[in-house]
Design a binder for these strands. Sequence first.
RNA 1: GGUCCCAUCGUCUAGUGGCCUAGGACAUCACCCUCUCAAGGUGGAGGCACGGGUUCGAAUCCCGUUGGGACUGCCA
Length: 480
Amino acid sequence: MAPRVRFAPSPTGYFHVGSARTSLFNWLFARQSGGVFILRIEDTDVERNRDEWREGIITALAWLGLDYDEGPYRQSEMIGDHRAAADALFRAGYLYACDCTREAIDERTATRATPGYDGYCRDRGLARSATTALRFRVPDEGVTVVHDLIRGDVTFPHESYEDFVVVKSNGVVLYPLANAVDDRTMAITHVIRGEDLLPTTPKQVMLWEALNRCTDEPVALPLYAHLPMLVNEQRKKLSKRKDPVAVESYRDQGYLPEAFVNYLALLGWSPREGEEIISRAAMIEQFRLEDVAHSPAFFDVKKLTHMNGEYLRRLSAGEFVARATPWVAPWNSAWRPSDRSPLWREDQFDATLFARVAPLVQERVATLGEVPGLVDFFFLDEVVVDEVALAGVAGDALARDLLDAARERLATLEWTAAALHEAIAALGEARGLALRRAQAPIRLAVTGRLIGPPLFESLEIVGRERVLARLDRIQELVAR
RNA sequence: GGUCCCAUCGUCUAGUGGCCUAGGACAUCACCCUCUCAAGGUGGAGGCACGGGUUCGAAUCCCGUUGGGACUGCCA
């Protein structure tokens, strides 16, 4: 039988990089084994779920290129199944009613060595009512063994589990049961998820086995694979509050989905061949659950960024222009990054001109979000001149003199990058300045900064008229 | 506190008893290239947590210690 796996996120916030990694590994496993990848959104916690978060999951998965064969299912649509399973379990005695409040439990267990529920209602034989929750009767003795494809067999003693709540007093069936029931109805064969769920797995195994004893058609347990956590610099599980984990924000910053996926794949897994930059096809071919690492991985944005730059540089010039469009000309794009409008207006932008300058910036950026900052002077009528650099030029007699000479020389020069290069070099030479020093004041005048794309090509593209105007303007600024 | 997981350069990892004077990538340093900044090239520094075993031989197997993490909700 073909493997069936599912990615089962709960829509309680922005799509998390950890979720992206989990879904990727599920997807890779499904694709490599000829299996089925299912998206099931676990939206039963009404308090914390929001529609926009649910949309976010679907959008993010699409962006990452992780297509699912079934779904998106919504767990809330399967509540009937959950209730039926709970009823069966209760009738068979695996579950019992409990009316203890958190406060009452805390009071009773305050002096005990082990925290958690004390089994107070275990044998009270309470009837179900609107104030009773249903708890699972965990065997006092014995162990439950979880067969994990990554870690091997993991044994949990029953005595370390309290009688956990399965159904809330308001009738809502909780995660351990709902999740297991859905996995049964969807015939899930492999559960691939984060290691943080490992300690709750025995609960699901116990429930699963109890369910099997309540039916004539038992369902085989799935195989488990618990992925190592993604951690921050403090080696703590990535936190939604403190760490930059929203996949959406990486998209906004201009990370390429293929680079992002490639980087994610390297967290806890590595290609058989040495090369880290690897195509999706090769990834699918080489991926093995058994090869997944056991220890937590730090999500290193620096390495991600480097890899993104590498992907950017491998793009054809035309493709680079197309990919950069949401950042430089959002009005020409169906999707646009939030909070990242360029400094220029639509009427100032020139697509043909951008296509000419794009190759100059392509190898200078690591994310697409950096592009506008490097090409602004091509589109702005007046550049913002860096104050510190301006003061440097103002205090340099040689530089001021060179600016004067350049203003005159460039007025009549043949307007090509090569001629500009030659002329400015000569201007510098006449004053004993190396080209690196001679080009600086001109670069400042035309681009507003001391760093940027190659100057002479830039001058050619900006055009004589605007270059001369900017040379005039910097002389005014310097004179002040 | 209890249960469980984990432990190779700063980081991500290769390594499954001899091929390891431990390989690669990011970061870092130096040099080269160079109109700035990048990119690129070359080179360097940097690691098997510790202690016991097993073995002719251990990063690799076993035990312990230490360290880190996860879970311990009428969240998922």
